[in-house]
Design a binder for these strands. Structure first.
Lengths: 335, 335
DNA sequence: CTGTTAGCGCGTTCAA
DNA sequence: TTGAACGCGCTAACAG
């Protein structure tokens, strides 16, 4: 039952008052504001020495309680086990740490109930704000967050019914470029394999595809729970229609489609050319290597986190942030 | 500045005392222990109604402070952007949530300084325990954790100098099986590509390899920062020695080696057979599919988390846990 | 049986 | 440089 060293212990040990220890620990001395609490150098040193010797660590709970701030934010991603979100998580962790924030992560798995449970849980932990990948059906929960007055930023997608601060890429534009690249590689009869998830990301990618490939080009929708089967079904139709250029709307879809195509004996990048979204380590195994759309993940993390920090600061200064709904649209690039 | 609803507001609104609200909120009524606080059903209902209407959420900071427990644990993984740790993270998140714990994640990137910084930061946040992937050079920090009296469990590897609670797989045994599988596939002149990281995991895998392949079989060590170059160097030597069976000690190494071998025109699974560790989605692209060692990640997460929860409970009951250093060794399987 | 008062936990901060 | 109130919720002790 190792008791934690408290500010009292330090005060007693150093023979000074609790207040003084607090001042010293917070560098309230030498502050350039009006309030200068002056402490003699010798007592300051003594306090620091004692604190170090006793391994003093201020209780964050007490500090939170007193200051009314937790410096904790909640980040809800779709799936930590997906490399796409893994990279984001790592970036977020780093950026938040650098800015003095602690992060709570959650995997929603595109399930609105999980989404809601996690939000409730985070609210109980007094998070000061959220970064969210909103899933289909999460509208009610998001309304509740808005009502709670907590700032948040959505990433990767936006909710069509809500105008809220968001950071995402120009999916339509980059998809057009992707299709053009596919045509340049010799693709003439094109197809798109997308998720059946009706999130803005997929809808926009489909729109960009139609813009270039035309309305007659087939779009196959696959379900992440039946990926393998759906990919095989799509493959059959692709072969029937003799398509020679396929865009896949995510790295996970790519992998499934590659497997399904190979199973049918299709020579990838020869019989059929592929262009994909998001990085995967399988692309390089073909020649020519599969072209893909690379999202600027570190930038997405950076922009959205800083956006959130700004909102939190504004709120703490008493400003009204309920009308802020600017989106930040980043550019992706073809690799 | 949306003020948070406090217990006081509820008490005032419902016309009762603060204590009563607390009792009701904690279901302290009808408790079967000695202390039964009885509240009339009508006031109970009124309090619950008011609490719900005002959207009352007890401040976890205050509760932590009072109860002396945070229900937070810290998990330090090597790299959240690596699928291996991503899967673990997701499992941990789920298990901890189910058990009423909150998780703080950190990516150490095998850097003892980052490791230390993260531990310090977590200690400040009053984590009740840790799950750690200890990196080379983290010994001093771990000693400090021990001194702080916080329970912890290490996973994936163990520190040779410390006997502490650990969960990992039988690396030697499974490596022997992996090598045997490689021989069965026709491998006669074998080699191993491992990390230059001197962690128990790699050392044991090398030992298991030697056990079967003999002392003359070459072991190549690659550095994760110079992966590509090191893989190419290894490949050159492999070709020179005319090896026909290679074991790679991780999925990341596999991918690099596959690229390097293909670059040299080697036909994988034909000229040279591969057997690998940990899942990657590239294995299926070869025929026969590349055999790999699958670690029971959900089980690793489950066992280590429950182990930690047990230790925390014991500590909270006042038991001495400083002598507990049992390891849990799980079995991996060949796929 | 039903409910209240009051002190505590720990760090912050104002008035003295 | 210090005493003491304070933030919020928990709970022992006590009262009607």
């Amino acid at each position: 039952m190792t008791k934690n060293v408290t500010i009292k212990d330090i005060a007693r040990e150093a023979g000074v008052s609790i207040a003084l220890v607090s001042f010293v620990m917070n560098n309230r001395i030498e502050a350039n504001g009006k309030k200068r609490y002056r402490v003699s150098e010798s007592t300051k040193q003594k306090i620091l020495e004692v604190a170090k010797r006793m391994n003093y660590r201020p209780s964050s709970a007490a500090r939170m309680l007193r200051k009314g701030r937790t410096h904790v934010i909640g980040i809800l991603l779709s799936d930590l086990a997906n490399i796409f979100y893994g990279i984001l998580a790592k970036e977020f962790e780093r950026i938040c740490y650098q800015n003095g924030y602690t992060v709570l992560f959650g995997s929603t798995e595109e399930d609105p109930e999980r989404f809601d449970r996690l939000v409730q849980s985070f609210l109980e932990k007094d998070v000061e704000g959220f970064i969210l990948v909103p899933c289909v059906g999460s509208g009610k929960t998001i309304t509740q967050i808005i009502e709670s007055g907590r700032p948040f930023v959505t990433i990767d997608r936006y909710h069509p019914d809500y105008h809220v601060p968001s950071v995402f890429i120009d999916n339509i534009g980059i998809m057009r470029k992707a299709v053009e690249a596919l045509i340049q590689q010799g693709g003439q009869r094109l197809g798109l394999v997308s998720y059946d998830l009706r999130i803005s990301t997929m809808i926009e990618r489909e729109e960009g595809f139609r813009d270039i490939a035309g309305n007659d080009a087939p779009i196959y929708l696959v379900n992440s729970d039946n990926m393998e089967r759906d990919a095989e079904k799509a493959t059959e139709d692709i072969l029937e229609r003799k398509l020679d250029g396929i865009v896949t709307a995510s790295n996970v879809i790519s992998v499934s489609m590659i497997k399904a195509l190979r199973k049918k004996g299709v020579k990838i990048q020869k019989d059929i050319h592929l262009v994909s979204f998001d990085f995967s380590n399988v692309y390089d195994l073909f020649s020519p290597a599969i072209t893909y759309v690379q999202q600027p993940l570190p930038q997405i993390a950076q922009e959205s986190a800083e956006y959130l920090f700004r909102l939190i600061d504004m709120k703490n200064r008493g400003e009204d942030i309920s009308n802020i709904k600017e989106n930040i649209i980043l550019k992706a690039s073809l690799i």
